[in-house]
């Protein structure tokens, strides 16, 4: 117990727990819909957009956050526009993604050649993030944005769920499906921008995909899964930070990802146990997972 008290007395640890926790919560909530809409690739691309945007801002010499959020929003909306009904498809994301990586390489070169003091590990730091390096003002911004994303997402959850599960019927009932697609990608973009700066694009991808995958396995009820996804994400982050504190050689990103992936792996056998008691009625066909009913 005294170990945990000692850990939490350090201001950098406090920021990591609070800001990181809120980011994990928002990533888990957003991730539920990202997985439901099969848009993890888009989230992955947006996290690299954030990296390239931040490097671009460094290369040009403007505030890092302008490049980060500006690029994320612009590319998020552009990918939504290129896809149908506000959903970017695999090929569009892939092409934009590859170009973004190229731009990142360009900005890294420009930055390292123009700033003799700068070193090439800037890209590495941006890519992997440093959750313990957050300053007080950065942590405050991260907390505010993460909270805002979580609130907006919960407010949009019901129509977004409808539009995701059956976009044709939702459109017929007057739900602005396309607009919701854009709004959702904007939310993913803000999450990606914020999380990339605070915890790194690697952890963002993991927290979008793994907790939501586990939650989808554990329950078919949408709102229960939504909250479960947020909770698993938050729990993985806190458990990972504690483990990384206890075992200093472990990077926090590895510890957090281990818990997130571990929860997914654990959910696989559990979901089989859960589904066994209710065999499909003859003639109706196999029980279909959520969303594939068409």
């Amino acid at each position: 117990m005294s170990g945990i008290a000692h850990m939490l007395s350090d201001p950098f640890q406090q920021r990591a727990f609070l800001a990181g926790g809120l980011i994990a919560l928002s990533a888990g909530l957003v991730g539920y819909f990202v997985v439901l809409r099969s848009q993890v690739f888009t989230g992955d691309a947006l996290s690299h957009v954030a990296t390239a945007g931040a490097l671009g801002a460094l290369a040009v010499g403007v505030d890092l956050r302008i490049g980060l959020f500006g690029c994320c929003l612009a590319f998020g909306l552009a990918m939504a526009a290129l896809g149908r009904r506000g959903r970017a498809d695999d090929v569009v994301v892939g092409s934009v993604f590859a170009w973004i990586l190229g731009l990142g390489a360009l900005f890294l070169t420009v930055y390292t050649t123009n700033h003799s003091g700068g070193n090439s590990s800037a890209g590495v730091t941006v890519l992997f993030g440093s959750i313990f390096g957050l300053s007080a003002s950065e942590a405050l911004l991260a907390e505010g944005l993460a909270l805002a994303v979580a609130l907006v997402l919960v407010a949009l959850a019901r129509p977004l769920l409808f539009a995701t599960l059956d976009d044709a019927v939702a459109a017929a009932r007057g739900v602005p499906v396309r607009l919701l697609g854009f709004a959702f990608l904007a939310l993913v973009a803000v999450t990606a921008g914020e999380a990339t700066q605070a915890v790194g694009s690697l952890l963002l991808l993991g927290l979008l995909a793994a907790p939501a995958g586990a939650a989808h396995r554990l329950t078919d009820r949408p709102f229960r899964a939504l909250w479960l996804s947020g909770a698993i994400s938050l729990g993985s982050l806190w458990a990972g930070l504690t483990l990384a504190f206890a075992v200093p050689t472990l990077p926090p990103s590895f510890a957090i990802m281990s818990f997130a992936s571990g929860s997914y792996l654990l959910a696989l056998p559990l979901s089989h146990l859960r589904r066994r008691p209710s065999p499909p009625a003859p003639g109706i066909g196999p029980t279909t997972p959520l969303g594939s009913t068409r």
């Binding site: 848009q39 793994a210 995958g213």
Partner: peptide
Amino acid sequence: SPSGKGFSEESAVIGTVQAMALAAGFLFVS
């Protein structure tokens, strides 16, 4: 999933594998 329609776990698993592999890479490097 047939032509990407409907819910499939595919993207969640791929994303998890990629993030976990990169995190492991970061661990090996450190």
